[in-house]
Amino acid sequence: MDRIPILKLGSALLVTIQVDMHDRLATALQEDLTEKIVSARAKGVLIDISALEIVDSFIGRMLDHIAAISRMLDAETVVVGMRPAVAITLVELGLSLSGVKTALNVERGMDLIRRRLIETEAADGAGDE
């Protein structure tokens, strides 16, 4: 079975969704990501959807799930590269993706994750001895 590759990018993981997703692929991605967040001690997950021509409620729910799982594993999910036509359609569909952070592109998404990392490190440092 084909799977979507997960790359490590500093303290974050990068997933680029390039194909029209069917169910098995979506389920496999959720499982793989969960494992990789733990094994790579990732603090962030970037999901690049710039290649996706549509996001329906199935994919929307998958993005929400991934964000919820990541949060529980202390990692933040940022969805990047949503096409404007997709954003317009999502709003009309009624999908708010309220649990998911978004950024224009991978670079800005990484910035968000880095900023969070600095904040938590500062908080941890203040708590030491």
Binding site: I54, D56, T89, L93
Partner: peptide
């Protein structure tokens, strides 16, 4: 238009599913 294409394809995806 691109936006209308995206809308009808998304609707089709929901209804087919």
């Amino acid at each position: 238009s691109l936006v209308d294409q995206t809308k009808i394809v998304t609707a089709a995806s929901e209804l087919a599913r």
